[in-house]
Design a protein around this nucleic acid. Structure first.
Lengths: 220, 220, 220, 220
DNA sequence: AATGAATGAGCCTTCATTCAT
DNA sequence: TATGAATGAAGGCTCATTCAT
């Protein structure tokens, strides 16, 4: 439920004066429809990217009339926000937990947890990857969520390594990129085991290295 | 000259029978024109991404008529291939050198060289990043080039670490992702020094960690 | 009651065989509902014009479900007819009275009465103005009503001026246009007093001038 | 030529930052095309009004592809502005002349000239009438032109009657409405001679009446 | 009878690509 | 060969209208 509530709250907040928010589905049927639309949108965005995805294709993938699609998601950007936010919400939840656990985790365990958090929600994570790099401007939810995730990863790194927040914040973007690498490479059809293992290892080495003055020094 | 010859060779090879190849400019003027178009295309692709870039904007940025643009690059995909390939070619050249130097390089030096190779050619590297993630299907040059680069990075890793080729090939995609991270984060406006330093450090740690049985074992 | 009965009578008569007529509300509640819808429709038509007005906005302005709106007014044109006809009906009533009074009225008094009759029914008169110019074809009530009004104004002019009916009928359309000018200019935000005064004066002068052979002659 | 130059000048001035201005046709062919489009647009706007007119219908009436239409007129509003402005420009030119002649003209001659100025440019005047009442907001050329015309009519009335400018400005809107009445009624199929004659007479009487203190007093 | 979700034709607009000049 | 006008398919989105609940 949480994702859902956050979704609609943020959607409102990300709109300017003219905001039409789309309708919260009240009936059972509407709830299902929204779910179907989100799934379809995730699939299509993942497959084609934001620009090349068409609302028509999404609608037909969701077995819905185009008008119904627009009833719930008043435009393409907001639909993408909803898809992205569904993924980001669950990731943020996971990261919230990791913030607490981080002090107890070694580099390997931490890396495993981080990579795992980026692999959740199968159809949605691929869409999120595709949506993450959009060059769109405007007050899009996606940017805000990306920033939250980055911040949270910074927190986790600080807690896990004992490094000062500034240093952790410097590392967070790279760690995030490494976390994103796994879904990206998986999508390309590489051997899943190898991909996951190497992603973990890269992060683990990076984190471990950051805790040893030697390596840190060497890096500079 | 190399980039250019490779460009047209591969372009042909990557097209089926129906391919129209675009015209090799023979005169001096044509050569300049092509260069101007490529520069303009790189700038526009970098700025907007593949889909949002328009042929018209590219033409006018190159101070060329749209018709001339199409004379040299028969369609948008091929133009993108040419832009991408100009970047990839120079990267491949750089990597060729690295293959030879690799055995002599420690992890830090190697990481520095790899990150540097991904930061060359300012306007083109951003275009390359933007074009790399396009989900286009079809027989595009970009995919082939990506694969060559990946292979070459594998070679370098093997040479530098002494690891078996299989293991190096497993690592190459992750290293490549880390190399790409630098331009990506730079484009987002993060502090350049920090970004470059961390990218190097991540790769260095990863490579170094792969040479110590301990870390390797731990990662698995 | 009169407007209502005329409304539904004419609506039927203005539709061909396929006409679905909408339901006469029998219960008290239905009567209120229809009134609320008409008010809302008048407001929205006045504000936006026929084309830009949406059935959805009208329904929600009337605090009614869209389905209920369609229950009473089977389509947008018929709804507009109903709105227009409510205004036209009251205007026809007023004009009926004027027909009797006309012989006793001087040009100024007549002009004042005519302008006043066009300013009745605040929300509806603006809607009527907006609806009057719609270029819709088809068997719409609006045209018929416009014609009745025109005829009646002709009667009034004949009675007031003593001119032959033919001449009065020639003048009626212009008088009507002058009457409509007041609401139009009011809507544009001009000074109400000035607008009303000038509208009266124009009509008064026109009528007065028509009674003086001199002016009539001069006009031709 | 004047209308044309004014057209493109004003079009630019009426656009905000994002203005794409459409292309000034350079070649002969383009000039003809633009003329054909304007004619077609005038006809369609006159026939259906702004909202109900579709760009597709206009294009096909002009025997042009929709894309060509947009090449010259980047959107519907600007196209309507161009149509309106073609009419308004010639009207303004005529009124400019009238400003000078006005002091010498009696009410009848003045009325005749005013009505005539509103009947020029057959296909365009009907479009102008249809376009004049649009409720659109935004920085449209049409509003500015309407205001200029109103001002100029005020000038003419002042010059013709010797009344103070304030009083003339009060009268101008009504005179304009009366001028517009002629095209409106003509479009409805009324007898042209009668319509024109009565329109002249109404204006003449109004103007004449305004010069006799008696009638002015009476009107108030 | 009332409700509001569902439908889909159709609108404005963009842009890759072609082709006459 | 260079130019830029012409073309039209396709995309995002709206809204009148229908119909299941």
């Amino acid at each position: 439920m949480r994702g859902s509530s956050r979704l609609f709250y943020l959607r409102v907040s990300s709109q300017m004066s003219t905001a039409r928010t789309g309708v919260l589905p009240t009936r059972r049927r509407g709830r299902d429809r929204v779910a179907a639309i989100l799934d379809a949108a995730a699939a299509v965005f993942a497959e084609r990217g934001f620009d090349a995805a068409t609302m028509t294709e999404i609608a037909s993938a969701a077995c819905t009339a185009i008008g119904s699609l627009y009833r719930f998601f008043p435009n393409k950007d907001l639909l993408a926000d909803a898809v992205f936010s569904r993924y980001a919400d669950s990731m943020l939840d996971t990261l919230d937990v990791l913030v607490l656990q981080a002090p107890l985790l070694g580099p390997e365990a931490l890396a495993e947890a981080l990579v795992a958090s980026g692999l959740q929600q199968r159809p949605y994570r691929d869409a999120a990857v595709a949506l993450a790099d959009e060059r769109n401007e405007g007050p899009l939810l996606r940017k805000a969520l990306r920033a939250s995730i980055r911040d949270k990863v910074g927190l986790i790194l600080a807690a896990a390594t004992g490094l000062p927040a500034t240093q952790a914040a410097r590392m967070a973007p790279m760690v995030l990129q490494a976390m994103k690498a796994a879904p990206v490479l998986l999508r390309e059809g590489l051997d899943p085991e190898a991909v996951v293992a190497e992603a973990r290892r890269m992060i683990a080495c990076y984190v471990a290295g950051s805790m040893q003055p030697a390596c840190t020094a060497a890096g500079r």
